[in-house]
């Protein structure tokens, strides 16, 4: 098939740009290890407590190293369960020192939920039967709202929690 000269230039330029984008994305994914959250661990959605991370006492913020934390979250319509404080009241805010390495580990006990820490790159889907995990470093102090960004029912927009990153 004959192509006009300008058209060849245009196709080479366009396809070349797309290839360049893909190479950058590929290097990010496979060389630097920056993949989208794709945790492969499964769980019984009707018995999530059988998994160590989602036992009542392990929910919420857990310090695992000097500057390393794991946050276990159990989502259900329309709430993020972050465990209970000393007085037995549900935790709605977790506080993390700036610069800490944090692993968010979450699942759902009912329908699909979103898990978005607005203003950060923490964003993943929570699906029944799977654990979703994302590791990040919280560098910038501030107050971040954890919101459900996947429709989960009539109270979807009321499902949130707060993460505070404080300067030490």
């Amino acid at each position: 098939m004959h192509l006009h000269r300008y058209e060849k230039i245009w196709i080479i330029f366009g396809t070349g740009a797309l290839l360049a984008f893909l190479i950058i994305l590929g290097i990010g994914a496979f060389y630097q290890g920056s993949q989208p959250p794709s945790c492969m661990v499964t769980i019984d959605p009707q018995n999530v407590q059988a998994h160590e991370a989602f036992k009542e006492e392990n929910l919420g913020l857990n310090q695992v190293g000097e500057n390393e934390y794991v946050v276990n979250i159990l989502a259900s319509a329309f709430n993020y369960d972050l465990g209970k404080d000393e007085n037995g009241a549900p935790v709605k805010t977790i506080r993390i020192p700036a610069g800490a390495k944090v692993t968010f580990q979450a699942t759902t006990s009912d329908v699909i939920h979103g898990f978005e820490l607005a203003g950060t790159n923490v964003n993943m889907m929570l699906e029944p039967g799977y654990i979703s995990e994302y590791e990040t470093t919280m560098d910038n102090p501030g107050t971040y709202t954890l919101i459900c960004n996947e429709y989960c029912g009539t109270g979807h927009h009321l499902m949130y929690a707060t993460v505070e990153v404080y300067e030490e």
Binding site: G14, L22, S38, C39
Partner: peptide, 22 residues
């Protein structure tokens, strides 16, 4: 952003998605 799908195959489909821009 879904769990349970291998990121390698996600990337393969990202490549094919870019092809559909041509």
């Amino acid at each position: 952003l879904e769990p349970g799908i291998d990121p390698f195959w996600k990337y393969i489909q990202v490549v094919l998605t870019f092809a559909v821009a041509i």
